[in-house]
Amino acid sequence: MVTITISPDYGYVLAAAVSTFAVAQWLGMRVTPFRKAAKIPYPYEYASYEQVQTASPERAKAMILFNSAQRAHQNFNENYPVALGAMLIAGLQYPKAAAILGAVWSVNRVIYGWGYTQGLEGGKGRYYGILWMFAHFGLIGYAGTSAWKIINM
């Protein structure tokens, strides 16, 4: 039987994990004003290509910004379970590294979401927050290493 002792530094991992809750809420709430400006009713998730192409330039821009805000939120949701799980697993063996990478992930998800809605062609503003991806893969690597260490205890 393996006994895992959790370091007092694991509290930092939990704090980083809690920060992701705030990011999730912020990204979700951020979509609403863009939806209203684009006049896209519920339950439609995005403005369609056809809607954007046939809209006035002002409305088309609002629709593209809505789609960008929605896409930033969806991208977060697609990557969130892996990041959170990896953060919690990595923190078992590497609490400080997991906490730092978790914080970098959260901050850069905010920058990514903000950047995506800056109206740059093709949503290129999202690249301002590209560090989230490096933190994401770092967390996965540390999680794998943590699992390996625990298996070999």
Rank of each mutant, 00 (worst) to 15 (best):
Q53W: 03
T54N: 10
I89D: 07
G144V: 12
G144T: 10
Y142S: 13
F134M: 06
M87D: 02
V52G: 07
I150T: 05
A103Y: 10
G138I: 09
K124Y: 06
T3A: 11
K124V: 07
Q70G: 10
Y94R: 05
W105L: 09
G141N: 08
A15T: 12
V18M: 10
Y12Q: 12
Q51T: 06
S48H: 12
S56Q: 11
Q25R: 15
Q74G: 13
A47T: 06
G85C: 14
Y142F: 15
P41Q: 09
H136G: 02
V107C: 03
A86L: 05
K61I: 00
N152E: 07
G28A: 13
I6Y: 02
K149Q: 14
G122K: 07
V107L: 15
N67P: 10
N79I: 02
G102L: 08
Y112H: 05
S146T: 15
S56L: 08
Y44A: 09
I111Q: 00
A83Q: 00
P33S: 13
V104C: 13
Y112T: 01
R35P: 08
L84H: 08
G129D: 03
G113K: 01
N75F: 01
K124R: 12
R30N: 08
A60I: 02
N75G: 05
M63L: 12
V13G: 12
Y42T: 10
N67G: 13
N108G: 01
N79R: 02
I140H: 06
V31E: 11
Q70S: 14
F137P: 11
W26Q: 14
A62Y: 07
Y142T: 10
K36T: 11
W132H: 07
P33C: 14
R59A: 00
P33T: 14
L84D: 09
Q93P: 02
I140G: 04
S7K: 04
M133R: 15
G11S: 07
Y80I: 02
I111D: 01
N67R: 07
F34N: 03
V18P: 00
A135P: 07
L88H: 15
